[in-house]
Design a protein around this nucleic acid. Structure first.
Length: 423
DNA sequence: TCTGGGGTCCTAGGACCC
DNA sequence: TCTGGGGTCCTAGGACCC
């Protein structure tokens, strides 16, 4: 018999900010997306005030001030580091752990036979994570990952559960699922929710009871698996070592519109440098590249969007080679006279560097070895002294197009210059 | 002035081949 | 000139997740 627990940090980004700034503890806190665009995290107080997920921040500017809402830019260096601390701690409580997202992990508790033991372990894990990292989290326990997800939401909604809910020992599974909206089920997004609604399916119980052939036909095999998981049949295994990434994207909105080709070239070079860094960290080489750009679709002005992607002559992780190819691709899609809002690059066809396909025309030689050493050195210096300490001139120095992040908290845990000061 | 970024999986349809 | 089925591979688009 399978048994999963889903650990999910409460209001993760807002909680991270609170660990290091006590003045945020009881205040409504919101964290904004890149470019300070929209709300991507809210503390419980902010949710209670009615701040919605994904709301554009500029519409609420005055209201935030009047309500005393504390507004922060996102600080991914901080969240990534805090996430690692939480995951390391959780790993002590289960033989197998799947890190599912920056703030969620599945624990495999299938080895436990005493139903009380699962809850006891989750309670202990919850207290330990809070004590060691300062991050509060909730646990949902169930016989499938989807049911553990359901249980987790219930644990969060109802304060009486003290942050832990085990759906596998619920006296009446039917009643629990009947009070759980189908649209909140993992794997049911906006489109499927509307489709289900049209067929009179509003709760998780009704969803689980749909005929298999209907699910398969209208919601693909994944919809069928979701329903089976709701019936208690575990279809989604715990993935301990997620397969290596298939693509790497780096894209950003600009802090202000970009009109000059020279600035666009800088941005593409900067994004490619970043993407190549990620690629080398994965120990991969990319054999396919895409460059894309677009104007602001929210604005009433001439619109243009285009992309060009193509295989590379040789799979590589070498930043200058990628920049060279990327600028050639940009050349094919650039049009003068538009106010560009965003651009990005995508690396795909990623293979492990050790087993790369070699071209007969360019067997690895001393030049490749030099290139590898150079990249290694670049990554080490940037890892030690901060991203951007060394960069390619093509990526620009002033970067006037850089995204805006006006209210970013310090990198408390990942930069020597920004450590919190006790006093 | 101002609306995120980074992923995965599945399916349909076209190109191409035999 | 017209005509068939079956297979693979690739891409675009749509759905989902956080």
């Amino acid at each position: 018999m399978k048994l999963f627990a889903l650990a999910d940090c409460n209001n993760f980004y807002a909680s991270c900010e609170r660990v290091f700034d006590p003045s945020l503890r009881n205040a409504p806190v919101v964290v904004l997306s890149n470019n300070d665009g929209c709300v991507i995290a809210r503390s419980a107080e902010a949710k209670a005030l009615g701040v919605g997920m994904g709301e554009p921040a500029f519409k609420r500017e005055g209201w935030f001030r009047s309500q005393g809402v504390r507004v922060l830019s996102s600080n991914y260096a901080l969240y990534g580091d805090m996430s690692a601390r939480v995951m390391d701690t959780l790993a002590l409580f289960a033989p197998r752990l799947e890190i599912y997202s920056i703030d969620e992990a599945f624990l495999d508790l299938s080895h436990l036979h005493d139903p009380d033991a699962a809850r006891r372990i989750c309670r202990e894990a919850r207290e330990t994570v809070l004590r060691w990292t300062g991050i509060p989290l909730s646990f949902g326990i169930g016989p499938s990952k989807t049911l553990a997800k359901v249980a987790n939401k219930i644990a969060k909604q109802n304060i009486n559960h003290n942050g832990i809910f085990d759906i596998s020992i619920a006296q009446n599974m039917q009643t629990v699922l009947q009070t759980f909206p189908a649209s909140d089920v993992w794997g049911v997004g906006r489109k499927y929710a509307r489709l289900l609604e049209r067929h009179g399916v509003r709760d998780a119980w009704a969803l689980s009871g749909l005929p298999d052939h209907w699910l398969r036909k209208n919601m693909t095999v994944q919809g069928l698996m979701t329903a089976m998981e709701l019936r208690g049949v575990s279809c989604l295994p715990l993935e301990q070592a997620p397969p290596s990434r298939k693509s790497i994207i780096c894209s950003r909105s600009f802090g202000r519109p970009v009109l000059l080709r020279s600035e666009m070239e800088e941005a593409v070079a900067a994004y490619l440098s970043r993407a190549a860094e990620k690629l080398r960290k994965e120990e991969g080489v990319a054999s396919w590249l895409k460059v894309f750009l677009l104007t602001n679709p929210h604005k009433d002005e001439p619109q243009y969007a285009n992309a060009y992607g193509a295989p590379l002559a040789l799979a590589t992780d070498h930043t200058p080679d990628l920049i060279q190819a990327g600028l050639a691709f940009l050349d094919r899609i650039w049009r003068d006279g538009y106010r560009y809002k965003k651009a990005g690059v995508m690396l795909a066809g990623i293979e492990p560097k050790s087993g790369r396909q070699l071209s007969l025309l360019s067997l690895p030689g001393p030049k490749d070895e030099r290139n590898d050493k150079l990249m290694h050195c670049l990554d080490r210096i940037n890892g030690r002294w901060g991203r951007g300490t060394l960069q390619y001139a093509a990526a620009g120095l002033g970067r006037p197009w850089r995204m805006r992040q006006l209210r970013k908290s310090p990198r408390y845990t990942s930069s020597w210059d920004e450590l919190p000061v006790a006093g």
